[in-house]
C-alpha cells in the first residue's frame, strides 16, 4: 500500500511543482515570484516528509528545518528590498 501512496503523492507533487514553476516564470511582479518559490520550497519539504514516512527514517528532519529557515530569510529579505526601493522617491 505504501508504494501506491508514494506513486500517487509523487504525481500530485509533480503537478503542484509544475504549477508553482509556471507562476514563477509568468508572475507579473517580483512578489508573485517570491510567493511561488516559497510554495515550491514547501512542496520540496512535503516530498522530504513523504520520503521519511514511507521509508521510516528521520534523516531529512534537520533538512526540513533548514528549508523553512531558508524560505523565511529569502522571502523576508526580498520583501524588505522591494519596500525599500519603493520608498526612496517619496523621501527625496
Amino acid at each position: 500500500m505504501m508504494q501506491t501512496v508514494m506513486a500517487v503523492t509523487a504525481v500530485i507533487l509533480s503537478l503542484a511543482a509544475a504549477g508553482a514553476i509556471i507562476r514563477i516564470a509568468r508572475g507579473p511582479s517580483l512578489l508573485d515570484r517570491v510567493l511561488a518559490s516559497d510554495v515550491l520550497l514547501a512542496i520540496l519539504g512535503a516530498a522530504l516528509c513523504i520520503d521519511m514516512a514511507v521509508n521510516r527514517h528521520l534523516n531529512n528532519l534537520m533538512l526540513l528545518v533548514a528549508l523553512s529557515i531558508v524560505g523565511f530569510i529569502g522571502s523576508a529579505t526580498v520583501a524588505r528590498f522591494v519596500a525599500g526601493r519603493r520608498e526612496q522617491p517619496h523621501e527625496s
Binding site: V5, T9, I12, L15, A17, A46, A53
Partner: peptide
C-alpha cells in the same frame, strides 16, 4: 491507512496551493 490518508491529503494541499497560485 490513517497515515496513508494523511500523506495523500497533505500532498493535495500542495496541489491546491499551485492551483490557487495559477
Amino acid at each position: 491507512t490513517t497515515s496513508a490518508v494523511f500523506m495523500v491529503v497533505g500532498a493535495l494541499m500542495s496541489l491546491a496551493a499551485a492551483v490557487g497560485l495559477l
